[in-house]
Nucleic acid binder design. Structure first.
Length: 206
DNA sequence: CAAGAGATCATCT
DNA sequence: GATGATCTCTTGA
């Protein structure tokens, strides 16, 4: 109980600054591994150690929504770095992305999985399958566990209810694989833009 | 277990 | 009108 409270005590001084997100999308995707996603919510806070990401690197990337141009949906990606791009897919699931790179360059990192660290009981109440390994091991599951939906689309990651902490861990060893579910993306579908923490039990099962 | 289908809707053609 | 940065449950071996 006491340990749980310690874990929940977040420190905004550790919050990643906007300059972090202004790096290249690939760099951001790699460096987000081992960082902590923090979601503040009236029901309670939830925290997870990011273990899986995917980079969507810009307008030329056929797997990136922004390759279709600037629309109401993709508008956030064209804005400044360090904001959330949240969209709804398959009639069921929200996907959380963090906008990267400079203003007017549309790119983002998809957060695909996290190891639950704080607010685990709350996550279990939000998820049908309350197994620890199944709470946030996939982009849709993660959004459900962290109560992330489109109301957070465009949210500033440097001031509010949703941000990422650097707790001083070095970036863990990781591997790169092709991205999931982007078979339509022609020669871009095989790019090794999915990054997973090596040996983590909490990555998505694909 | 592996494979398959169904769920369900915002977005763009 | 089609389709998707998915998940879960059912089926059958």
């Amino acid at each position: 109980m006491f340990n749980e409270l310690l874990k929940l005590d977040t420190n905004s001084a550790l919050q990643l600054p906007r300059s972090f997100y202004e790096q290249t999308t690939i760099d951001v995707a790699k460096q987000l591994l081992g960082k902590y996603l923090v979601r503040k919510h009236p029901e309670g806070n939830t925290i997870g150690r990011i273990v899986e990401t995917e980079a969507y690197v810009g307008p030329q990337d056929l797997a990136c929504h922004a390759s279709k141009g600037r629309t109401a949906r993709t508008d956030v990606m064209f804005g400044p770095a360090g904001h959330a791009y949240v969209y709804f897919i398959y009639g069921f699931h929200n996907m959380l992305n963090l906008v990267t790179e400079k203003q007017d360059y549309p790119a983002a990192v998809l957060i695909r999985a996290a190891e639950p660290v704080g607010g685990i009981e709350l996550m279990k109440t939000r998820r049908k399958n309350g197994e620890l390994l199944n709470l946030a091991s996939g982009p849709g599951k993660l959004c459900q566990a962290f109560a992330i939906d489109r109301s957070l689309n465009g949210a500033d990651l440097c001031s509010g209810l949703l941000y990422v902490e650097d707790r001083g861990e070095p970036t863990p060893r990781f591997q790169a694989t092709p991205r999931i579910g982007v078979d339509y993306a022609g020669r871009w579908k095989n790019k090794p833009y999915r990054f997973l923490v090596r040996g983590s039990e909490f990555v998505s099962k694909v």
